[in-house]
Design a protein around this nucleic acid. Structure first.
Lengths: 119, 119
DNA sequence: TAAACATATGAGCAATTGTTCATATGTTTA
DNA sequence: TAAACATATGAACAATTGCTCATATGTTTA
């Protein structure tokens, strides 16, 4: 079969229909990129652990470092990434900065991930 | 304040309670790792694009490569990763191998990701 | 204002990742 | 069985990533 001037294996699927459906529903290039960037943020166990702590309470950087047994710098770098993705928000109180979850999608996404794994 | 022999900044949060809650709800080390590994799979726009095509139909490797304008090898490598994560399944039919979504979590996770971004 | 505390950040490095290229494996057909 | 087709895979390489270390920024307190 020939599609767009390129040869292709034989399938039962009508290629034109597939291409039409994909073109209609596939997000734009930049949206796909943003989506991948978002999931990349979830793709690190340190950041997942940070999120799990924030599931319980609003916590300052110092305490996060303690609870997770990591350096303040490492935690701070990861918090920056989480904040850029709008997964967490921060609030300064004196010398400390307290972090908390930005919205409910975080819980849903992680819950779905766990469901998938636990099958 | 001193927690587990280590000095820490002053907070209003009771540390013992936080640590107790986190220890209770935080998944085990290997579960956290698996969770991060799963989200890593979603963290690449090529794989996201493959999943979007599979949202529409069961498609063979050759067609995926065509529709996404990528080499057969690149697609095949990514399909392997998607299959290892049990996000897609495959079925051989003659010379072709057809891939399809393994379960509904894929749609939910991606939908939640899009919702988060579109806020 | 100086010192102490809490957090943020840039540079550097080892480890991981996505693609390409060449080639192997598996299936069908002449 | 040989050739053609479809897919899978290993090696290699550039690009990205997460941590450490040193240090900067911001805030409070003596």
């Amino acid at each position: 079969m020939i599609i767009n001037g390129v040869e292709c294996c034989e399938t039962f699927q009508t290629h034109e229909e597939l291409i039409k459906a994909v073109n209609e529903k596939m997000p734009q290039e930049d949206a796909l990129y943003d989506l991948a960037e978002l999931f990349k943020v979830f793709g690190d166990s340190t950041r997942i652990r940070i999120l799990y702590v924030l599931f319980e309470a609003e916590v300052c950087v110092c305490d996060l470092a303690q609870v997770l047994n990591m350096t303040q710098s490492a935690i701070s770098h990861q918090l920056k990434i989480l904040k850029q993705s709008k997964l967490v928000k921060s609030r300064r109180e004196g010398k400390s900065v307290f972090y908390s979850l930005a919205d409910g999608h975080v819980r849903t996404i992680i819950a779905q991930g766990r469901e998938h794994i636990e099958e």
